[in-house]
Amino acid sequence: MSDERTDQELVVAIRRGETGCFETLYHRHRDFVWRTALRITGGDEHLAMDVSQEAFAWLLQRCRKRLRLTAKLSTFLYPAVRNIALTHLRRTSRESLGEVPERPAPDEPGTSDTLEVLLSRLPDVQREVLLLRFVEDMSLLEIATALEIPTGTVKSRLHHALKAIRRDGGEHSSD
């Protein structure tokens, strides 16, 4: 499955009735959607599964209508996944995004899980920006669009996140 077409071209093809193109789109963004859903749901795989499935169903529906991508599809997908996840969380009476329980930190800082611990200590809004920038390789503008916040806020959150990692885990800031 090596479809070289861009996301926008695939979206147009889906609207033309080439349903197989959606499978390409799905495989291209599956991990991103899954990671986002898993993180927002606080690691609840069952809930993340429902969220991911619903997100792709929503995307397919949008593709069949008139969807014009003005940015990366991930920028478009991110708020959708987040909103679906928050709806699910509200429905199941779980805690909201800012109150997702922190993962328990290991007793011995400095092990191979250190970075994971550092991440878990970051406020969600900072962790979110850091992961979008470093894992999903999104630009500041794309992050700002996805999160519907000013670019300056993105910079600020990213700055604080990096500062915290530098402060608490020197080995990760030695790049």
């Binding site: 990671r35 970075l115 991440l119 850091l130 470093f134 894992v135 990692i165 990760h172 800031s173 790049d175």
Partner: peptide, 12 residues
């Protein structure tokens, strides 16, 4: 920050 990026991706 290539090392940080690599470690974060490995975590993800």
């Amino acid at each position: 920050y290539p090392q940080l990026a690599a470690e974060l991706r490995e975590l993800a």
